[in-house]
Computed example of a mutant assay.
Amino acid sequence: METVWLLASEEGGFGLNFDILETNLINLVIIIGVLIYFGSGFLGNILSERRSTIEAAIKGAEDRQKKAAAALIEQQKNLKEAQARAEQIKSEAQGNAQKARAAVLAQAEKDVERMKASAQQDLTSQQERVLRELRQRVATLALTKVEADLPNVLTDEVQTKLVDQSIALLGGES
């Protein structure tokens, strides 16, 4: 066998060494056997634990997924209820706004009518006051003019005639 090895080395090729002791094939078989014999239980336990852990994680994830789906359904239901309530509140608010608007418009109309009436009353009152002042002034001017002209116009004859006419009127009515 050495010759085969030498031939392979000299020729620059590849050769096989069939000497079992030199290659430690027996040592490798013994180590692999020991690992299989003693390690199979150890590796089996590790793989079994790993499998249990993975199964537990999958089951937990499935449980969480079911809970999340149930929570999602519940929240969607709550959302629909909240949206319905929001629509109801919106409708009520619009109705209240319309009522308030109508009330404000009615009050404004009443206020405008009251202001018009007040302005008309003020205008009438101002007209009456102005007319009263004007009459007073005209009467004062007329009296002043009459008092100024009276001594020239009212003579003794005219006074006597006026007194006689007044007596006749009084006497004729009795």
Rank of each mutant, 00 (worst) to 15 (best):
R50F: 10
R51M: 06
I54P: 02
E55S: 09
A56E: 15
A57C: 02
A57I: 05
I58M: 04
I58Q: 07
G60P: 02
G60D: 10
A61K: 03
A61Y: 02
E62D: 15
D63K: 05
D63E: 11
Q65V: 14
Q65K: 12
Q65N: 12
Q65S: 14
Q65Y: 13
K66D: 12
K67Y: 00
K67F: 00
A68W: 07
A68Y: 10
A69H: 13
A69T: 15
A70L: 10
A70V: 10
A70Q: 09
A71W: 09
I73K: 13
I73H: 05
Q75V: 11
Q75M: 05
K77R: 15
N78M: 08
N78I: 05
N78W: 07
N78V: 03
L79K: 04
L79T: 01
K80R: 12
K80M: 11
K80G: 02
E81A: 15
E81F: 10
A82R: 05
Q83V: 10
A84S: 08
A84Q: 14
A84I: 08
R85V: 04
Q88K: 13
I89F: 07
I89V: 14
I89Q: 12
S91D: 13
E92N: 10
Q94F: 14
G95Y: 03
N96C: 09
N96F: 11
N96T: 09
N96P: 07
A97N: 13
A97H: 13
A97D: 14
Q98I: 03
Q98G: 00
K99R: 04
A100D: 07
A100K: 06
R101K: 15
R101M: 13
V104H: 11
L105F: 04
L105C: 01
A106E: 11
A108R: 08
A108T: 06
E109R: 09
K110A: 10
K110E: 08
D111F: 01
D111I: 01
V112R: 05
V112D: 03
V112F: 02
E113W: 00
R114E: 03
K116G: 00
A117C: 01
A117S: 08
A119C: 00
A119Y: 02
L123Y: 12
L123C: 09
T124Y: 08
S125W: 05
S125K: 07
Q126G: 02
E128C: 04
R129D: 07
R132H: 12
R132S: 14
E133Q: 15
E133V: 10
L134K: 11
L134Y: 04
R135W: 01
R135P: 00
R135G: 00
R135V: 00
Q136G: 13
Q136R: 05
R137M: 02
V138I: 08
A139G: 09
A139P: 02
A139Y: 04
T140C: 00
T140H: 02
L141C: 07
L143A: 06
T144A: 08
K145H: 03
V146S: 11
V146Y: 07
E147Q: 14
E147L: 10
A148I: 10
D149M: 09
L150V: 02
